[in-house]
Amino acid sequence: MVFALSKWEVLLQQGVNGLILGSFYALVALGYSMVYGIIKLLNFAHGDIYMTGAFVCLSVFGVLSGVLPGWAGIACSIVAAMIFSAVLGWLAQRFAYRPLLGAPRLSLLITAIGVSLVIYNTVMAITNSQPLFFTSGLDNAAGIKIGGITVTYIQLILLSVAACVMIGLTLFIGSTRTGKAMRAIALDQDTCRLMGINVNKVIGLTFLLGSALAALAGGLACVYYGNVQYNMGYTIGIKAFTAAVIGGIGSIPGAMLGGLLLGLLEAVGTQLLDSSWKDVFAFGLLILILILRPNGLLGKSEIERM
């Protein structure tokens, strides 16, 4: 290495990278956790929603870049991606999941695999299996130096956006009427119906929100990493689920904590181990957590209802 970084500085630098990675995981994990909490569905298509978000962001920016360059264009593209994916998630919910809400959970899970296959293969066909590259025209390396480590502006913006969204979501679920309805439906759907809550509408809203968050992560990942490919959602889908389980599935702060933790562990772990074992590390952790603490770090122990 040319730069004489001390071992601690390398580890700290990896910590920053881990936080970024963790924010992506956390944003995707939130959607998983919300949907799982409310209808007990492991939404297999969630990773593909993330991928779709990245693609829409890239395409919209391609159109906008002449008119709105730089950050304004990026912001608009990400918002467009969020709207598109939210609608996509809602449509999947309306036409594929809702008819099966009373059916065995295996059917619901399999339907989710079907939705995932449809989205994945549609994007694969549209892009002809080729990766697309994102160039914002901004200086990606610009940033501030703290001691030996560098934090780029993109990283800063990314972290603050993720933090704001997570705080906003916590407030929304914790203190609005709709948020309360969501928590109530997670506890007992039938009683909620009796109490006059429009259950289908709230479930639809959960999908809208979760998909928008996944698309936000996808759009940010597209800006940060600079390339987008049809299979980018698969691994992050499993990892975000891992994060949700680590934090305690169904728990919103748990999903955030699990995401950040997984990102950090992975970044630091890659530093210490060979990077080709990175995924083994993450999935091994998932199995270990399920053995040792199946309800996750912040999850409440729960008896499966009949």
Partner: peptide
């Protein structure tokens, strides 16, 4: 042994993760 005691849909994700491993 550890996963089948839990909610059965955990098995789905664990088998997926294990296949990747």
């Amino acid at each position: 042994a550890p996963t089948l005691k839990l909610r059965s849909d955990y098995l789905a994700i664990v088998t997926l993760g294990f296949a990747e491993i």
